[in-house]
Design a protein around this nucleic acid. Sequence first.
DNA 1: CTAAACTGCTCTCGTTTTGCAACTGGTTGT
DNA 2: ACAACCAGTTGCAAAACGAGAGCAGTTTAG
Lengths: 169, 169
Amino acid sequence: MIEQKRSGCPINLTLEVVGDKWSLLIVRDMMFGNRRHFRELLTKSEEGISSNILADRLKTLLDQGIVTWADDPSHKQKGIYSLSEQGIELLPVLAQMAGWGFKYLDVTEELGIRAKLLSEGGPRMWAEFMDELRETHLGIRRKRKAGPSVGERLQAAYEKVVARKAKQG
Amino acid sequence: MIEQKRSGCPINLTLEVVGDKWSLLIVRDMMFGNRRHFRELLTKSEEGISSNILADRLKTLLDQGIVTWADDPSHKQKGIYSLSEQGIELLPVLAQMAGWGFKYLDVTEELGIRAKLLSEGGPRMWAEFMDELRETHLGIRRKRKAGPSVGERLQAAYEKVVARKAKQG
DNA sequence: CTAAACTGCTCTCGTTTTGCAACTGGTTGT
DNA sequence: ACAACCAGTTGCAAAACGAGAGCAGTTTAG
């Protein structure tokens, strides 16, 4: 099976790797939702990916070195998927897509709040979040900063919107 | 024909619009190669898109408001495709993808040089290039800056690599 | 004036990808 | 022992993709 590239253009090559409707959603769920097991990715996804597609995409993400896999010592059947440095560095791509989508598409309030904050935060916030991801996915210690982490702030903002919407009915 | 969204997440919505292997390549060619006619997009593409796919993607890009269409007064059969503001603002997405691809994938030198410069140039350079695109695609005058434009600089760098490679044979 | 080349597509048809749903073989908790 | 949970796999129909030919009208070269 010879994988032939259509061209050596970096944009094209990137699209050949993650240019489909699911791969980046899986990366998103690993980044922002901290989904690390197959079942978590399968059932806790907003969009409802099907299991064969998930299995296939995880395989190519592994092949590409975007994601790594390890045994979960607490459970013989479970594996833990982690983002590699290469995967973590997809964050700016996701952040730009999120910002563009937030600006131009019909985004729901609770799912858009993270995009808004991330877009406003800019490269500085992205770098901080990537450091947090390096800690959780690669085990690389980072310097603690005062106050809540970027991940915590995003999550808190999301939950706040959900709570408000629930109250309003 | 009811278009149902999988979710209201901005990343998902963006992927539903441009998350395929061709749409962003068309935008890329319009941005960096100034391809404005159907034939230009069809025949001058690095990757060799086929005509039915090109027609289909242009249709959805038009529907989405990423691209606009106008008659070419110089030729009764020609139409001119232009990027809208919404389309121009895909530049940061492309730039991030280009930067990531340049760093991690097997990019050829001549096709990677633009990505390198754009990545190094950062948001400031992107903003300048977007202003140039607003001029050529939207007809919005911009303040002239001294020296060559970003578009010219990228093109010159590309041609320099091509010339050097040709000499080396 | 005529013919060749060019224009933006559309059509056909075989191949590939998608996605639902059921199923497998094993593990864990009660 | 048994239900619930784990990571996938398999079968199949529908949809999307993609190469190539074709088309009606337009422009250009001789």
